[in-house]
């Protein structure tokens, strides 16, 4: 593996290797000593064109636990905000000897472009409405550790799939790993050509699902006529207590965060025992350690 640009690029063997490696990383993270010498002398650059403190911190923690040198290069207060092109930034990072660049960017495909300009590895930490592969990996990891398997799992992805990079990565990865995904939401927010099951009625899928993944819904979508009002959205597609109780006993509720409590998810659900939201954050570090190790832990 040279880059991680898209979850759709991962075959089942590679994806499973990442999850297995993450499991080992997680067992190491449980110990008193949390730093491993593995990537000593390697430089990881966090290149963030969007504010995402949680994702940046997760990557930073992962890199530091593997003893990599971390450089944070955020769009604010750098030459990036002065209009330097991505290509020029890439050449700068190249000159700095970056072994890996973790990029978060509002434009879909920016990591693909970056990968053509730098020699090091490129890790997509979320690009536009395209993909967020490490989120999908950590979600798969969370499902596997909670439910013991991925093959055959029924996963409902609920909400604004159209604009969600998390959904795209999850749909691709879960299909590769043998789970069965159903997209749920208003027709305006569900692309019909993702080659997966679609359902417009949340209530009808709940009783027969192992995982409900709630996506963040941005309130601005309302102004673009994707749905009439917050109230109507929450009523039709929000996961509240009564809906949660329709789920099978073992089913879990996931959310990539940050949540709109009261919109797509009720506080009662977010804080319930079914919710894996806090676990997802912890698993994020292990999965990102695994990815960094698999990208940088060998001959370049």
């Amino acid at each position: 593996m040279k880059h991680l640009l898209s979850a759709a690029d991962l075959d089942a063997a590679t994806a499973t290797l990442v999850l297995d490696t993450a499991a080992e990383m997680a067992s190491l993270a449980g110990r008193e000593v949390k730093k491993l010498p593995t990537l000593r002398g390697r430089t990881v650059v966090n290149l963030f064109y969007e504010d995402s403190t949680r994702t940046r911190i997760s990557f930073e923690a992962a890199a530091k636990r593997l003893s990599a040198d971390v450089i944070n290069f955020s769009a604010k207060g750098s030459s990036v905000s002065k209009g330097e092109s991505l290509k020029d930034t890439a050449l700068t990072l190249q000159a700095m000897g970056a072994d890996a660049v973790v990029i978060r960017h509002p434009a879909s495909g920016a990591p693909h472009r970056l990968a053509t300009w730098v020699e090091g590895s490129v890790l997509n930490a979320g690009d536009g409405t395209h993909e967020h592969p490490t989120q999908a990996l950590l979600d798969a990891y969370t499902m596997r550790s909670r439910l013991g398997r991925l093959a055959g799992l029924k996963v409902a992805v609920v909400g604004d799939v159209l604009h969600s990079r998390v959904a795209r990565s999850n749909v691709a990865l879960l299909a590769t790993l043998g789970a069965k995904v159903t997209l749920v939401g208003p027709p305006t927010l569900i692309p019909v050509d993702l080659r997966t099951e679609v359902c417009y009625d949340l209530d009808s899928v709940l009783s027969d699902t192992d995982v409900v993944m709630m996506l963040r819904v941005q309130r601005e979508r309302m102004n673009d006529s994707y749905f009439p009002s917050e109230r109507e959205y929450a009523r039709r597609y929000g996961l509240d207590g009564p809906r949660m109780r329709k789920l099978p006993e073992h089913a879990i509720v996931m959310h990539p965060g940050p949540m709109n409590r009261g919109m797509e998810i009720a506080p009662e659900v977010a804080d319930s025992a079914r919710s894996t939201i806090v676990e997802q954050v912890a698993n994020g570090v292990s999965v990102r350690m695994a990815v960094l190790y698999l990208l940088l832990g060998g001959k370049s």
């Binding site: 290797l17 080992e24 067992s27 190491l28 491993l36 010498p37 190790y293 698999l294 832990g297 060998g298």
Partner: peptide, 21 residues
């Protein structure tokens, strides 16, 4: 005791799979 993550020759070979400790 898996030692993969502690090796000093990681860069000389393709990435090794980590074993359980």
């Amino acid at each position: 005791l898996d030692i993969t993550l502690y090796r000093d020759d990681l860069r000389r070979q393709a990435t090794r799979a980590i074993g359980p400790t």
